Computed example of a mutant assay.
Amino acid sequence: MHDLNGTTVAQDDAVAGTPATPTKAAIAKEDAAAAAKARRGKLFADLAPLIGLAVLAVAFVLAGTSAGTNMGYAVETLVNQSVIVIIIATGAIFIFAMGSFDISLGASTLVAAMVAGLVHNATGNLWLMLGASVLAAVTASLISATLAAVFNLPVFVTTVAMLSVLGAVAAALVQTTGGAQIRIDRSFAREYDTLTVKIIVAVAFLALCVFLFNYTRLGRVEKLMGGNPVTARLTGVSMKLTAIAAFAIAGLGVGLGAFLTALRTPTLTVTSASDIGMNILVAMVFGGMVISGGPRSRIYAAIIGGISMALLNQTMSIMLQGMAGGAGIAQMVRAVLFLAVVWLAASGFRTKVLPR
């Protein structure tokens, strides 16, 4: 020991195995590295859906060109497949942003489409048909939200119950026609089942949702509820009214999607639109939507995911055309990609620094 100021003692302690106390500079450097890693992870998670969309678009063009597919018709089919999912998924984002979960969207779409078909058959009026579809869908959504608010039940529980109720309602509506289906005049449906009508409906609804989600208090409150419901409650947010507003917007999207479904499929049965609910969930995940909701929720996830799903389906159809078991292979590919996207989205935020 050469002096009494502690310098040599500290060195001896280090040699003896006693860990040295990290300096402020070392702590700051470690925090900066963690923050940089968090930013890289967030950037990767944000860009992954766009990269996936670009890859699927290239694969679609290459597969279609090599197979000699009519690309004009393929693109039209692509729009027809994606637009309904995009509309309904965009409205559903208001529910998922709160950290809630609605599995009755497919059944609600079917019931609203059936109501639209019955109203058209009774009146022959396009606008009454549209209004009936929206009213039926919004009513079903508000029933789910109201039950959850009044009885303090998880939204997931009420939507499970509504799934069974709506299935029974669909069966009852079919029986009113005396048969097993509801038919809409095909010439009428063909007249309005056009890309122009679909694009107008989609653009109008998407513009409304983007404004409400990104530029109003409603969108901010929903993301706050999904990220930290306790903080939202302590800041005076009306959890029940916000949930009801979210379900009303989602119902509007379902109603518009059901209207287009009735035009697209003028013969409706109890199995029509049976895969819409799952397609919506997969599309949102493909688009980068965080199922837990919160501040990472993105309104554009429905658009990216809906187009990605349609591109994947079209590409798989072209590549597996005529192959035995092609449908099963396509389902397995979608399942693997779904799990991969979920893992990548989650891994982008596995950091020691809280997301800002």
Rank of each mutant, 00 (worst) to 15 (best):
R40F: 01
A45H: 05
P49C: 10
A54M: 06
D46Y: 08
A10N: 05
V58K: 02
T7P: 05
T21K: 09
A92S: 14
A67I: 04
T7K: 03
V9Y: 09
A16N: 11
A89N: 03
I87R: 02
A54Y: 05
D46A: 01
A32T: 09
S82E: 06
T90F: 13
T8P: 05
Y73G: 12
A67G: 02
T69D: 01
A33I: 13
N70W: 00
A10S: 12
P49M: 12
A59W: 08
A14I: 01
N70D: 15
Y73W: 10
A33M: 13
G68W: 01
S66M: 10
K29G: 10
T65V: 09
S82M: 04
G64Y: 00
P22S: 10
V55Q: 07
Q81H: 01
D12G: 05
F44A: 07
A33F: 13
L78D: 04
G72A: 08
A92D: 10
D12V: 08
L50M: 13
T90L: 13
G52H: 04
F60T: 07
D13G: 00
A36F: 11
T18D: 09
A35V: 10
L62G: 02
A35T: 15
L43H: 09
T21R: 11
L78R: 00
L43A: 14
L50F: 10
L47S: 01
D46P: 09
A25W: 02
T23H: 00
T7I: 05
A54N: 08
L50R: 06
V15F: 04
V9L: 14
V79A: 14
V83A: 06
A20P: 02
N70L: 07
V15Y: 03
D13L: 15
P19M: 12
R40G: 11
P19A: 08
Q81E: 03
L43V: 14
L47F: 11
K29E: 15
E76R: 07
K37A: 14
G91R: 09
D31Q: 15
Y73P: 05
T18H: 00
I51W: 11
T90Q: 12
E30P: 01
A25F: 14
I84F: 05
G91L: 04
K24N: 14
I51G: 14
G17C: 05
A14Y: 00
A10D: 07
G72L: 04
L62A: 15
K42Y: 07
I27K: 07
Q81I: 03
D12C: 05
P49D: 12
A92Y: 12
K29R: 13
P49I: 15
A34R: 14
A74H: 06
T21S: 12
A45V: 13
A92E: 15
